[in-house]
């Protein structure tokens, strides 16, 4: 007798455990407004990345086409995988002294692991992380960028 009770107990117990699970899924089925899907390309306009999001390294320029990079090369040293190459030139400043200045700040986005170490290393806060994330291009060469814009100058008052 006991075994029969156990047998039916098992059946009903099992059955109810299944129903509990079905209740959970049914609740979500009937509350479709709680869906979590983001329809990505459609929601581009409203999609906002957090302000610390690490998308790519950029060098901000102000309205006079001036940046803060002195060409010290510390970011190149800090980078663990050689994504940054600094090419410097020497310029003659107004008082006739020879000075080192940035010629090209070359950044290989394709190699960058977005680790943020270059930004920490930069003594003059010349580079920062941008929030863009759509980096797909047809040609790999487009991923190699020159961060300082052509004709840009060092901002006044940035010391090395």
């Amino acid at each position: 007798m006991r075994s029969i009770i156990k047998y039916f107990g098992e059946i009903f117990g099992g059955f109810f455990s299944l129903l509990t699970g079905m209740k959970v899924t049914a609740r979500y089925f009937f509350t479709p407004w709680k869906n979590v899907t983001q329809e990505y390309p459609e929601n581009r306009a409203t999609l906002k990345m957090p302000d610390r999001f690490r998308g790519e390294v950029v060098m901000p320029h102000d309205e006079n086409n001036e940046h803060r990079c002195t060409g010290c090369g510390l970011c190149e040293l800090a980078c663990p995988n050689g994504s940054i190459e600094i090419i410097t030139k020497s310029v003659i400043s107004e008082d006739g002294k020879k000075k080192r200045a940035i010629d090209q700040h070359i950044y290989h986005l394709g190699m960058c692991t977005l680790c943020n170490l270059c930004i920490r290393a930069c003594p003059s806060s010349a580079i920062k992380m941008d929030q863009t994330f759509e980096h797909a291009v047809w040609n790999r060469a487009e991923l190699t960028k020159v961060l300082n814009k052509p004709g840009s100058k060092l901002m006044e008052g940035v010391k090395e």
Binding site: T25, Y28, F29, N35, V36, T37, E39
Partner: peptide, 13 residues
Amino acid sequence: KVCAAFQQRLGPM
């Protein structure tokens, strides 16, 4: 579509 609704998704759109 049904399984998507169970899983809080939208399914094919």
